[in-house]
């Protein structure tokens, strides 16, 4: 059974079509890359998977259930990192990590401590004083310290420096070793190439390709070339 199964998903905002017949299958235990330019519909898809937005049409199953109807129960089994991390300026990073962990049903204390060291994050600072990268680390530590079957990460590394990017990739590989599933939305194709088992490419709200990274490697094909070929002469693919 797929962890996430989406068939022919549509989402309209007024007249604008954010998703227009999108398909996605995420299998248990895989790291699944979710690739596409800004405005292609990645974040909308993730919000629908999380039950934060209501689909206009199509079928969405998370652990075999409808995420809009069973949001609360399903959220016990996942941790989420948004692309834009913004919290209340007068709470500290440590407080926010504990709060989010608590809302997910508890944190693994040892992992929390270990992750703070690995990501070099000072948890006693007020959120407003963090730089962009450190804000992202707060959300990452909160998510990775939760022991759940599924991790949904929406462009989680856009503000991290190369050293932290390495730490992030190590941690994601550790998750895979313990049998967790990860949905990783990203623009950074090298990151997707080195981490993912499979990748789905989205354009203008539709699936334009699903690739097994191991096979691409065997055929000496380059993910970046494939990605760019999907957008050849399609500058307008970037509209909302």
């Amino acid at each position: 059974m797929s962890i996430i199964s989406i068939k022919n998903l549509h989402k309209n905002f007024g007249r604008a079509k954010a998703l227009n017949g999108f398909d996605l299958e995420v299998y248990p235990g895989e790291i699944h890359g979710f690739l596409g330019p800004n405005g292609a519909g990645k974040s909308t898809t993730i919000r629908i998977i999380l039950g934060l937005m209501k689909k206009s049409a199509g079928e969405v199953k998370l652990f075999g259930q409808d995420p809009w109807k069973n949001a609360v129960k399903l959220h016990e089994k996942l941790a989420y990192v948004p692309g834009d991390v913004n919290f209340w300026p007068n709470l500290t990073g440590g407080e926010i990590i504990d709060l989010l962990g608590n809302l997910r049903g508890g944190l693994d204390e040892a992992r929390r401590a270990n992750l703070l060291v690995r990501f070099q994050l000072d948890p006693a600072k007020k959120f407003r004083t963090y730089s962009k990268g450190n804000r992202q680390k707060v959300a990452l530590v909160a998510a990775l310290a939760s022991d759940v079957p599924l991790y949904i990460l929406d462009e989680p590394t856009s503000g991290l420096d190369p050293l932290m990017e390495q730490v992030f990739q190590d941690e994601i590989r550790k998750l895979k070793e313990t049998g967790k599933t990860v949905l990783l939305s990203s623009h950074i194709l090298s990151e997707a190439e080195s981490l993912c088992d499979r990748a789905t490419i989205i354009r203008e709200g539709q699936t334009v390709g699903v690739y097994k990274l191991a096979e691409l490697k065997k055929q000496h094909k380059d993910l970046e070339k494939i990605f760019l070929s999907k957008y050849d002469g399609k500058d307008d693919g970037r509209d909302a």
Partner: peptide, 15 residues
């Protein structure tokens, strides 16, 4: 508006 609600609602929290 700041996006924090999204993360909170991804937890075990009723809408």
């Amino acid at each position: 508006e700041m996006g924090a609600q999204e993360l909170i609602f991804s937890g075990r929290v009723h809408r």
